[in-house]
């Protein structure tokens, strides 16, 4: 049996893509008008919720019985709820919770999903088979159902929501990361690194993951969108964030109960969920366009 011998000059012939190239793709991203709009929207939303104490205008929990269910006005931009609380303030503070949960959960999903998919792709064989069949099994159950069950069991605090939603997005992340790594794994620089004696763990950490960063960003963006939607759905059916705290989903539920008397109540919280998810989707799309220039000509 013969053993494949790597060419003697392997280390000269192949080099991982240069550092500069990665920033180039980010610069190309910003040149896409749609991406610029999406990033601006996201930046504004983040600013809004981070600066909530400054831009909130009213205390979101301050009850004013005489002002209940007022329509939008100069005093109350988005109107008031059934207890006279200012809806704009409640949406700003609710966004703080919704986006906070989304950021934490996305971080968890990306971290564990990358680890899971990374190990599956790098180890291959039986390990890969077992890890990916577990992913298949979990992914055949709709996320919202599992989320309902886990949230009912572990409570609906901000921490447990972030943990549960994060964990539930690990399988989809693992699947995507695995296929991205498999593409990269057989490129020359990886073969060279292996030949030079790099362990799979080092190869993954030092060579492959840095080069799949853009793909990971796409997935992070999609995860965040899905997490925001799922959290809103849970809160909407009354199993997520509980009053007096409220995320956009909770507000939507309260508005739905008052739909006959206060139509504006349901418009604004939903609008914020919509805009956030739209921006995240567009960002993911545009990232993909930048990564795969063939897409741009469609």
């Amino acid at each position: 049996m013969s053993v494949a011998v790597p060419p003697a000059n392997a280390d000269v012939a192949v080099e991982p893509p240069a550092e500069r190239e990665r920033f180039q793709s980010l610069r190309r991203l910003l040149r896409q008008p749609a991406a610029a709009v999406a990033l601006t929207v996201l930046a504004l939303l983040v600013l809004l919720v981070v600066l909530a104490p400054l831009v909130g205008r009213y205390d979101p929990t301050e009850v004013a019985p005489r002002d209940q269910l007022q329509g939008p006005s100069a005093m109350h931009w988005f109107g008031t709820d059934e207890l006279g609380r200012d809806l704009y303030s409640r949406i700003v503070w609710g966004g703080r919770l919704a986006l906070g949960i989304a950021v934490a959960a996305t971080a968890i999903a990306m971290l564990l999903g990358t680890l899971w998919g990374g190990i599956a792709a790098m180890r291959g064989g039986l390990v890969d088979e077992i890890l990916m069949r577990i992913v298949d099994g979990i992914m055949s159950i709709p996320i919202i159902l599992t989320a309902l069950i886990l949230v009912a069991a572990f409570g609906a605090s901000v921490t447990s929501l972030a943990l549960i939603l994060g964990l539930l997005h690990v399988p989809v992340t693992a699947r995507m990361v695995r296929s991205a790594i498999l593409v990269e794994r057989h490129t020359e620089y990886c073969v060279a690194a292996t030949a030079a004696g790099a362990s799979w763990w080092r190869l993954l950490r030092r060579e492959i993951l840095p080069n799949t960063t853009p793909t990971l960003l796409v997935q992070a963006s999609l995860n965040a969108a899905s997490i925001i939607l799922t959290e809103a759905a849970l809160s909407f059916v009354g199993l997520g964030i509980q009053p007096p705290d409220a995320t956009w989903g909770t507000l939507l539920q309260q508005g739905y109960a008052k739909i006959y008397t206060a139509y504006w109540f349901v418009i604004f919280p939903g609008l914020f969920i919509f805009i956030t998810i739209w921006a995240l989707n567009v960002l993911a799309d545009q990232l993909q366009v930048v990564l795969d220039p063939r897409e741009a000509h469609r």
Binding site: A225, L229, A232, A233, L252, Y263, V266, F274, V282
Partner: peptide, 22 residues
């Protein structure tokens, strides 16, 4: 289509109820 992919289904449902039903 981009809007349809971002719209929370339950919000769309509520809006349809508000305008077409109520």
């Amino acid at each position: 289509a981009a809007g349809g992919m971002a719209v929370p289904p339950f919000w769309l449902g509520i809006l349809l109820v508000a305008f077409l039903s109520i």
